[in-house]
Design a protein around this nucleic acid. Structure first.
Length: 864
RNA sequence: GCCGAGAUGGCGGAACUGGUAGACGCACCAGACUCAAAAUCUGGCGGGUGUGAGCUCGUGUCGGUUCGACUCCGACUCUCGGCACCA
């Protein structure tokens, strides 16, 4: 028997799969298609454990589907635009393009060392000229369809770096790189009109039962549909009106003031003649738009001197500019009801505005003077004129109807979802294909002139504040395609979520050279049957991609409504942390063990061991997958990750768990080879043997097939592997028990069947070792990746005897063995004959008998 | 604050639709093999109690439904994740 040498086995099979293109997906196939997609990586430099887990899960599913007879498409590519490439350009003086493609080369080799069943012929990077070109074409199609908009919007502005920051890049109200206090600024930005699809995106969630409940809830909340009423206040002494949106029309009689956003047009008007108002607005704009910044803000307001007229009472109520009102939601102005809205309550207390209770909760009487917080729950209307006495839900409808009748308002729907701003003032992204002309305005680049390629000579311009493209005059200055006068290119590039919004479509026809997509092939493979990736993309990527897909459907590029039929979100990879009081986070190799204590290798202080945090370089708790693969092999790495936890749960890293996976693969290797050596040339059993041991083993084989097959449907790889472990244990035991004697023919045949079964069942998890055993030890003529998943022999699952559990008053008292054909009555008789059962029955009277034939008997008794 | 997920031995985790709690692995203990060690193979392994068959407690806490509850219902505690002035 050869020793198991994972390095030799793995490189051999990786070469064979590559040379023979074993995993190339064919459109022309009589097999049913299955499109398995794993989230493509950003080429940051090296793969990490999260990638390994993601791709091990995806590959297990893909390989099993192949064995089940599907034509599987499992592609791989690179999400290659993005800021890290520009940061690398600054720190290493290396061109973003060179940095990106070098990283891709490294990471491709790493992925190939995992032996994943990818169709590498479809690989591309999103920064490839080709991909960027077709994305621009799609962009213009959406523009023609009216789904793209250029409008003013408030952004986080870094005054030092002269650039827009995403919310995630604002830390404690300061720019993550410059440290400058972030400002709110109005800028012209490009938007995709995702809000037009809000309702369809919301309704579509109900058509996705194969998505995790958490993701569906998160998307629902993100879209944030709310029903309310929009109506306008008249403004005292002015012709203009103040439209507001409210979800609580039932509280209309409790309105004691109005608040408007600092950016509201009315606020701007007031500021024009009042420097104090201007100062207040400026103060509001100092703080960023991030949640953390807003959270800390106290409720501040500025009285405009203007009054609104209450539409039902004609009362004059003051209008304030308030720092907590958002211009981007509703109308940017709200009616304020301090008694029934917590923000308005706090504001009223601070600004001495009256509080008027109009909803009385059941059982209590609210006293405005004594209230410590607003009552936002249900109740009966009070002090509300003709609406008094109604319950507030009924009142919502009645009051909305009244507004419609008066012609001052109507029932409307609002969404939390905003249009998707895709402008980035960055170099390393896909250029937005437009030209600004003084005469013609914003002009799309003619399709024939596409692609707008990024200039290559940019390195010196990166690193200075602002967008490098803005300063590259040779690139920026062009002629207007419409009138021919000198004009400027749009210098914004697209958000990188654009690229990940259609890459799964491009995989279907990656060589399509006349159009972004080849409809026949795209509609053959789409939708993606199973998508696998991290939960961190639950909203942004997965929502953008759903929207983009629907938009492409509406311009005729794809047929289906939803891109991803099923979604599996895998948990994080976590590991314990080591922290030295003076040196901070430590890697295990930066510690020493002495007298049972873990000490810092540098200062010998006692290390604090923290539990289970997400692997990250900053916490010094990462494990490099390359070390793992080089040391134990990819198969061990994959089996460990799939066995240690179910895929959706977080996985705790464990060195000894890796050892366990390694030992298990060695046990398989040895058992299969021992079977071949002890029983050379024997064919696998195809029917039930006579001998008891062999019969039992064959039963176990088919039970295992059954268990693994069912577990694979639920993606419970951990229990599937556990079942194979049990089978290996049973096989090893039988083989060891007959070391001295010669194996009977039927035992040999059954063991041979076991070997073949185990190898196929394990192939999705450990593809290399199983391929090697299949060809080398078992000498099968067909390659394993073309083999079929084993079938269950129903006869092997038939038991001669059954174990029945006997309970008395629900407590386990005995386990009896009964013949399989025993009737329920006979089983009950046998149960009562058991010695221990009899002891518990003495002095008792049987009240009831619950029988699950062949499984359980519960005798309910009470004292005589 | 709102929404969601979870809590089971020393550890990771099993238990499909209410029916044997702790599969499988790790760690540990013992035995076999060995001059010895490693590797391998075999057995043991929730707590208490008993010579033993067994008895008893036990799935975050408290209560309920049921012949029977890790599983269902109600209340609560803690942990993790998401959203957060959305009117």
């Amino acid at each position: 028997m050869k020793k198991y040498n994972p390095q030799a086995v793995e490189s051999k099979w990786q070469r064979i799969w590559e040379d023979e293109q074993s995993f190339r997906a064919k459109e022309r196939s009589d097999r049913e298609k299955f499109y398995l997609l794993v989230m493509f990586p950003y080429p940051s430099g090296r793969i990490h454990m999260g990638h390994v887990r993601n791709y091990a899960i995806g590959d297990a599913i893909a390989r099993q589907k192949r064995l089940l007879g599907h034509e599987v498409l499992q592609p791989m590519g690179w999400d290659a635009f993005g800021m890290p490439a520009e940061n690398a350009a600054i720190s290493q003086k290396k061109h973003p393009k060179a940095w990106t493609y070098d990283n891709i080369a490294t990471m491709r080799a790493e992925l190939k060392s995992m032996g994943l069943a990818y169709d590498w012929s479809r690989e591309f990077a999103t920064c490839d000229a080709d991909y960027a070109h077709w994305e621009q074409v799609l962009f213009l199609k959406l523009y023609e369809k009216g789904l793209i908009d250029r409008k003013q919007s408030l952004v986080n502005w870094d005054p030092v770096d002269q650039t827009v920051l995403a919310n995630e890049q604002v830390i404690d109200g300061k720019g993550w790189r410059s440290g400058a206090v972030v400002q709110r600024k109005e800028l012209s930005q490009w938007f995709l009109r995702i809000t037009r699809y809000a309702d369809e995106l919301l309704a579509g969630i109900d058509t996705l039962p194969g998505w995790p409940e958490t993701v569906r809830t998160m998307q629902t909340n993100w879209i944030g549909k709310s029903h309310g009423v929009e109506f306008a206040f008249a403004i005292d002494g002015a012709k203009s009106t103040l439209p507001v949106y409210t979800t609580r029309p039932d509280t209309i009689m409790g309105v004691t003031f109005c608040s408007i956003a600092p950016e509201h047009p009315l606020a701007t008007q007031v500021a024009e003649r009042d420097p104090k108002a201007q100062a207040f607005i400026a103060e509001c704009q100092q703080s960023g738009t991030s949640e953390e910044a807003l959270e800390r803000l106290e409720k501040k307001g500025f009285f405009t001197g203007l009054h609104a007229i209450h539409p039902l009472t004609n009362e004059k109520i003051p209008i304030f500019i308030a720092n907590f009102v958002l211009m981007s939601y509703g109308t940017g102005a709200v009616m304020a009801v301090p008694a029934h809205d917590q923000r308005d309550f706090e504001f009223a207390r601070a600004h001495e505005v009256p509080i008027r209770v109009v909803i009385q909760p059941p059982g209590v009487t609210l006293d405005p003077a004594a209230m410590t917080e607003a009552w936002t729950g249900p109740g009966i209307l009070t002090a509300s004129g003709e609406f008094t006495g109604l319950d507030n839900e009924t009142a919502k409808k009645r009051i909305a109807e009244r507004f419609e009748a008066l012609g001052i308002g109507r029932a409307t729907v609002q969404y939390r979802l905003r249009d998707w701003g895709i402008s980035r003032q960055r170099y390393w992204g896909n250029p937005i294909p437009f030209i600004h002309c003084a005469a013609c305005g914003v002009v799309p680049v003619p399709v024939a002139d596409l692609p707008v390629a990024l200039p290559e000579d940019i390195l010196d311009l990166i690193g200075q504040p602002g967008n490098p493209l803005e300063r590259h005059l040779g690139w920026k200055q062009v002629k207007c395609p419409r009138c021919g006068v000198p004009a400027q290119r749009e210098t914004d590039t697209m958000d990188t979520f654009m690229e990940s919004s259609w890459y799964f479509l491009r995989y279907c026809s990656p060589d399509s050279s006349r159009a972004p997509l080849d409809a026949a092939r795209v509609n053959h493979w789409m939708p993606v049957d199973q998508y696998v990736g991290g939960v961190e993309h639950a909203v942004l990527h997965l929502l953008y991609a759903r929207f983009f897909h629907k938009a492409l459907r509406d311009v005729g590029e794809v047929a289906c409504d939803e891109p991803f039929t099923r979604l599996l979100t895998q948990g994080m990879v976590r590991k314990d942390t080591h922290r030295c009081p003076s040196h901070g986070w430590r890697y295990p190799h930066e510690t020493v063990e002495r007298d049972g204590q873990l000490l810092c290798a540098e200062c010998e202080a006692v290390i604090q061991i923290g539990r289970n945090e997400k692997m990250s370089k900053s916490k010094h708790n990462v494990v490099d997958p390359n070390d793992l693969i080089q040391g134990y092999g990819a198969d061990t790495a994959r089996v460990f990750m799939l066995f240690a936890a179910p895929p959706e749960q977080d996985l705790e890293w464990s060195d000894s768990g890796v050892d366990g996976a390694w030992r298990f693969l060695n046990r398989i290797w040895r058992l299969v080879w021992q079977i071949i050596e002890r029983a050379p040339g024997v064919a696998a059993a195809r029917s039930m043997p006579e001998g008891e041991a062999a019969r039992a083993l064959r039963g176990k084989i088919h039970e295992t097939i059954d268990k693994v097959t069912r577990d694979m449907v639920r993606y419970q790889f951990n229990t599937a592997i556990a079942a194979v472990m049990e089978l290996i244990n049973a096989g090893t035991l039988l083989l060891n028990q007959s070391v001295e004697t010669e194996l009977s023919t039927e035992s040999a045949a059954t063991l041979r069947e076991l070997a073949e079964t185990v190898v196929v069942l394990m192939n999705p998890f450990a593809p290399h070792i199983t391929a090697e055993l299949w060809e080398g030890a078992l000498a099968m003529p067909e390659p394993l990746h073309a083999a079929r998943w084993p079938e269950i022999d129903p006869e092997a699952l038939v038991r001669a005897t059954l174990t029945v559990v006997v309970q008395i008053n629900g407590k386990l008292r005995a386990r009896i063995t009964v013949p399989a054909e025993a009737t329920p009555a006979e089983q009950e008789r046998l149960a009562r004959e058991d010695v221990n059962v009899q002891q518990h029955l003495s002095g008792m009277q049987v009240v009831k008998l619950v029988t699950l034939p062949g499984k359980l008997i519960n005798i309910v008794v009470k004292p005589v």
